[in-house]
């Protein structure tokens, strides 16, 4: 492979991987605090994209205003999902919450099909993100520069909330022992609602970046990125916010480089992602950056 082609493929991989990482952050954060694998994360992301889409198309808002409103609405949706679906099973065995999450995922997908319709819609990509830069024969989109910036910003905000605020302290307590936290007089339901709000805002941000990169949205668009983000989160150590970012990058690079080196195997791309998931679960269940499980 020529060096420029290889460099281009590396950029392609980073571009895809940073999107996986961005979506994985919200996934892993909710897991880290609640020990709940929120399978509806990808579908919450889809809802975020549609909010942004309708903000631009129906209400003719400027794109940035529409994106901000979409983030807020998706955050509220997260709270609503928690109130309606997860809170009633809060004290049930963990498997019930997991199954509920799958139910929420199907609900959002099918509600989306009814309300938004099954046909693909073109997502608006602002001109400033569409510019193509060329450095030494390697080409990339302006958007690519922004994805890591947005990701780091969200990462910083989430880490700040978790480690520097009172709500964050409560979140960390809940992740250790929900019952005791409740006994200490913390309004557990409120803290969990905030957790879902933050996680959903992160999902929406990831979704909007995704939709700008691949400007096509439909009610089933969240499934594949959601699964890939899950793999990225597990790869990085589920529950570890910074690990999700690194897991995403590695996954993106692995997928792209497989296709780059063996184009004839490109049909096995998704298989690679899920093979990585299986291998990680067998050999290092806590992921690359996960903490050791307590005895």
């Amino acid at each position: 492979m020529e060096p420029t082609v290889f460099a281009q493929q590396l950029i392609n991989g980073i571009s895809l991987g940073s999107l996986y990482g961005l979506i994985a952050i919200g996934y892993t954060m909710v897991y880290g605090i609640l020990r709940l694998i929120n399978f509806a994360h990808g579908d919450v992301m889809m809802m975020g994209c549609f909010f942004a889409f309708y903000g631009i198309m129906m209400f003719s808002l400027p794109w940035w205003a529409s994106f901000i409103i979409a983030l807020v609405l998706t955050g509220l949706l997260g709270v609503l999902i928690d109130r309606g679906a997860y809170r009633p099973v809060r004290n049930a065995p963990r498997i019930s919450a997991l199954i509920t999450a799958i139910g929420v995922s199907f609900l959002l997908e099918n509600a989306g099909l009814v309300v938004f319709g099954g046909r693909q819609k073109a997502f608006y990509r602002p001109e400033i993100f569409s510019e193509v830069h060329t450095i030494g024969g390697v080409r990339f989109l302006e958007l690519l520069i922004w994805v890591p910036i947005i990701t780091l910003l969200i990462l910083a905000v989430i880490l700040f909330i978790i480690y520097k605020t009172k709500v964050g302290r409560a979140m960390r307590c809940i992740s250790h022992d929900m019952e005791t936290t409740r006994l200490m007089g913390v309004d557990v339901n409120r803290v969990i609602a905030i957790t879902f709000a933050v996680g959903s805002v992160a999902a929406a941000a990831g979704g909007i970046m995704w939709a700008m990169r691949y400007p096509q949205i439909n009610p089933l668009m969240g499934i594949i990125p959601g699964l890939k983000a899950f793999v990225a989160a597990v790869l990085g150590g589920i529950g570890n916010v910074a690990g999700a970012m690194i897991g995403g990058l590695l996954l993106g690079l692995a997928e792209i480089l497989l296709v780059a080196i063996r184009p004839d195997l490109s049909g096995y791309r998704d298989a690679i992602a899920f093979a990585i998931l299986i291998l990680i679960l067998i050999f290092r269940p806590t992921g690359l950056m996960g903490e050791k499980l307590p005895e």
Partner: peptide, 22 residues
């Protein structure tokens, strides 16, 4: 000169297209 593969629902074709370009 080049055949590359993808799957329905794939959204990223940059790797295949870069190989094709080469």
């Amino acid at each position: 000169v080049a055949t590359a593969y993808c799957q329905t629902l794939d959204q990223d074709f940059t790797a295949q297209l870069s190989s094709i370009m080469a």
